[in-house]
Design a binder for these strands. Structure first.
Lengths: 338, 338
DNA sequence: TTGTACGCGTTATCAA
DNA sequence: TTGATAACGCGTACAA
């Protein structure tokens, strides 16, 4: 059994109250006893029990983070940003993956509630209201990161996807492309709509039509999703000279299929990704993409969550932070041939 | 304040003991009261408090996981494997990153001890004995994953790096290469030695000399590390016709430098990675590598940790599990020119 | 089948 | 400056 303040109290011949105070630098303790107690604690290898502390203070100093897939290449950095802030503030991080399963997500939230996390950060989820209620009922503040539900009254940190996609499309237009396709992701909700929206806005702004038949939807946001989407595109008689992809992984999958079909990128077809995952710089050709400040997003989410839980009941407005990245031009885009 | 069993007891006109028993399906409770209490609990939105439970049971049902960098491409899957097992067993996961900082690692372990995690999984660390003692003193079982210290008496799950590197080198030898270089990683301890060892064994086995001047060490295991290492190689008058790299990211970095210098892979130089990270299939040319069963490693580590913490004091032998992957031949290797 | 009483480790209040 | 006592929410002997 672990050493407790009572054990220390017995040895030091004081009450456990005194030990508790001494170890936490309480003012009303004499130098002598404080030092003596600290020494005994060190010798015995005392480690305070946060379960007991939490029971009293009704604060666990734990933040829960829920993601869909941990191995998502764009998520590592986000989590890292969160963790960076939490470590500095002496908070711990609970991590769980829902794997796109609402049932599992429900269980996870339940579990986190049982552990009385002080707050929750939910990444890229289509979380429904019922589960938010569970959290609210317990007074657990929640922050959504790049949430995929259409509307929400919950504090969020989002990337400005519409703008990013707009910029990418503008870049292609500026290079002279006039027939540009979009490779969408059926699994993404709001993100897909926003990125499609930015693409559309850029087209219309320069007087080009938005053509439904140039939108190809892949079943997921992985390389295979991009591959499947681009295969539909290849069947077209008049192919687009450039493709805007939902994200970098889909762009990479599409790239591979194009090359297997003897097409050269960017000569025969320009291609842009989204997100600037570390990998995007290492494919051939390196991908033009839009940088999402992933670590920054994580940091902001953690800071917002901490602010909320510290505010307690007197929550002000449900703040939403919108972060913008920047265009990264690499070699996968060029002017159209001919 | 959250609902407690006392609140329920009051409404149901029973003692809180009865509530406690009813909610956990204790046998000696009448159907009627059990159902009635469950109903009230649901209506009130009762969520048990694991801090209080843990205080009694001296078990937190939390496992700590310590890594160096969360965004490490080979780590996501490992963590996912861990998390998969834990979720099934109703355990929670504490995640923290040490960022190669021993001081930070110490704090993390301290923090996990305070939260009384039931066990710890430490990934690819050079953890020293002092910190293991902290854990042992509290009776927290620890499992090391791909640990980098030379020797250890701690239960571990490791990948058979020596064998993997041996197989990769054999593959190159079988293709006819006789001058093969090795790109090492200065930040890795045991893994680098093992992989160098397998390379060496394969060479010696076929009667080729192990030549120190063909070993180039990069400062880290990232793409930039591979780039820096291969630049040393390029300065050589007589260059190797193939390179064995510490891992896939270094191989990718090396690949890029070779191509920038006008060398063709695999025609001018074959190259192999290690680990089979998802990315390795998408570079040009796709990388020949050795598959590490990452999810499996995570699962095994979690299972081992759970087994240990359930065994309690009567720990048997400090089990060490060695997992083997398999050779993945792709297009980055071929017979040497001429 | 149900209830009483106590303890888990810590902190806070009040009194000395 | 220190100590006695209660309380946080829950589980469990023991008793009824």
């Amino acid at each position: 059994m672990a050493v407790t303040i009572k054990d220390i109290a017995e040895i030091a011949q004081v009450s456990h109250t005194t030990v508790s105070r001494a170890l936490r630098g309480h003012s009303a303790i004499s130098r002598d006893t404080a030092v003596r107690i600290q020494q005994i604690a060190d010798e015995l290898g005392y480690v305070p029990n946060s379960a007991a502390r939490g029971l009293k203070s009704s604060s666990s100093r734990i933040l829960g983070v829920i993601v869909q897939r941990i191995e998502d290449p764009s998520l590592g950095e986000v989590i890292d940003g969160i963790e960076e802030v939490l470590q500095a503030e002496e908070y711990s991080l609970f991590l769980a993956a829902s794997h796109h399963d609402p049932e599992r997500e429900k269980k996870i939230i339940r579990n986190m509630c049982e552990h009385r996390v002080d707050g929750v950060i939910i990444c890229a989820s289509q979380i429904d209201l019922a589960q938010m209620q569970q959290l609210q009922q317990l007074g657990v503040p929640a922050v959504l990161v790049n949430n995929q539900a259409k509307e929400t009254a919950t504090p969020s940190v989002c990337h400005d996807d519409e703008y990013g996609s707009y910029e990418l499309t503008r870049h292609l237009l500026a290079s002279g492309h006039t027939v540009i396709g979009y490779l969408g992701n059926a699994m993404a909700g709001k993100a897909n709509e926003d990125r499609l929206g930015g693409y559309r806005r850029a087209l219309i702004e320069v007087g080009l039509p938005f053509r439904e038949e140039l939108v190809f939807v892949g079943p997921n946001g992985l390389a295979v999703g991009g591959a499947l989407a681009v295969e539909q595109c290849l069947r077209l008689a008049q192919r687009p000279s450039a493709l805007v992809c939902f994200n970098d992984m889909m762009a990479i999958g599409a790239l591979q299929v194009l090359q297997k079909n003897g097409l050269h990128v960017p000569q025969d077809c320009s291609i842009v990704g989204f997100g600037n995952i570390s990998f995007s710089a290492y494919v051939t050709p390196p991908l033009t993409t839009f940088h999402q400040p992933k670590r920054e997003i994580g940091r902001e989410a953690a800071l917002l969550a901490l602010r909320l839980l510290r505010a307690g009941a007197n929550e002000s407005k449900p703040a939403t932070k919108l972060l913008r990245g920047e265009l990264i031009v690499r070699a996968s885009t060029a002017s159209p041939a001919g």
